[in-house]
Amino acid sequence: MSQTHAIESRTDTLTGTGIPSGRLGVWWFLASEIILFGGLIGTFILFRHGNPEWVAAAEHLSLTIGTINTFVLLTSSLTIVMAFAAVDKGDSRRMRTWLFLTILLGFVFLGIKAFEWSTEIGAGFIPSTGGFWSFYYAMTGLHALHVMAGIVINTILFISAVLDRLKPHEYRIELAGLYWHFVDIVWIFLFPLLYLA
């Protein structure tokens, strides 16, 4: 812990880039995540282009549920960035509240998504039903795994904040936020791809 911190404080003063290591590391990770989802989304676009009849399958998705979930995720991006703003103001109590809301919204998103999947599966649309459904479950499933990972990260931060152990590492809220916003951006593209187009 002290080691990481010592290094963190060194990087700004020495010949480094001036970007704190944590933030730089997260961005490197996000770069690889962009091309991961890029590969999946690009493939979907190509298949969708080659199979115009998939639009009929897409009609079965609930636009209402999709829109609500988009709203939930967009709002959770706001709450986590507000938590970070609270860190900058030195307001740990408000930071905890915003972080808690973010976790809650993450769960709401997953709950709605689970409900949506179960209605679709109940209606007989499973991954092997057809090409569109294969991609639908693969893309939303991979995204949901990322949401879960984000919830775990945020929860760890929240618990250590409640236990009053986060103080020297509060900048980690920003790092968790970067990842969470990325997951939000992926959804910003999945939403029109699956529900609107």
């Binding site: 961005w27 996000l30 770069a31 690889s32 091309i35 890029g38 590969g39 690009g42 676009i45 190509l46």
Partner: peptide
Amino acid sequence: SLAIVPLLLFFILT
């Protein structure tokens, strides 16, 4: 560039 280079690669791949 960490945000843009992977996007370029995504366009090339697609």
